[in-house]
Amino acid sequence: MILDDFMVRATLAGIGVALAAAPLGSFVVWRRMAYFGDATAHAAILGVALSLALEMSVFPGAMAVALVMALTVSALSGRGYAMDTLLGVLAHSALAFGLVAVSFLSGIRIDLMAYLFGDILAVSQGDLAVIWGGAALVVALIGWRWSALLTATLNEELAHASGIDPRREQLVLTLALAITVAVAIKVVGALLIAALLIIPAAAARPLARTPEGMALTAAGIGAASALVGLRAAYVFDTPAGPSIVCVAALCFVATSLVAGLRRGRQA
């Protein structure tokens, strides 16, 4: 069967994550939640450690801790704390506690690098089902709330006047973020999840005239980065997750240059 090939499974896993990350990443960029994504992803390492200690599957553990972190940050963000400091404290202490917790697990031999930077070439058929299931859930969730999310992102009072509760929409994004982090941890690892959220969306910005256009373009750039990145990793024998992020970053440079040239010609 074609899924028996590890490269095929890796490519499909990368594309699945890219498709979920594109619409979510667009909102992360529009709402300036980049650090929020980082904090959630770093917390997932703690979830991984807890899952291994309890000898259960990594996905629900990572998802639960990511969700708790995302909800905590979300709840605190409305209360006038200095957000960047608070996120810095939460994100890095969650990561540190996670790493320390992993070191206590003497019985099991864990390749920590696999969770920090991903291990996309080791994706099993079961993992693939979880990744595509999670990605479908995220896309469905955001697609369902799309107009309401967009209105709440533009202006909270306008959202209220249209009968939309911005806090509920924030909760939808928070949930989508936790799911994405949990499914992406195997593909790019906790340290690079935010990159997969933000870079394709940012690279799509100069090419888009509508929010939908930006999300679709980001999905295309993300999927292409997964394809090209994996191929490059195979050819040059480089780590797979970081190679995918490198390709996305090159796309960002290319579209930014195009936008810069276009602006230069207009001026």
Partner: peptide, 11 residues
């Protein structure tokens, strides 16, 4: 007033 983040393309 309406602050539109420059990263958000919308007509």
């Amino acid at each position: 007033r309406l602050h539109v983040d420059p990263t958000l393309p919308i007509t």
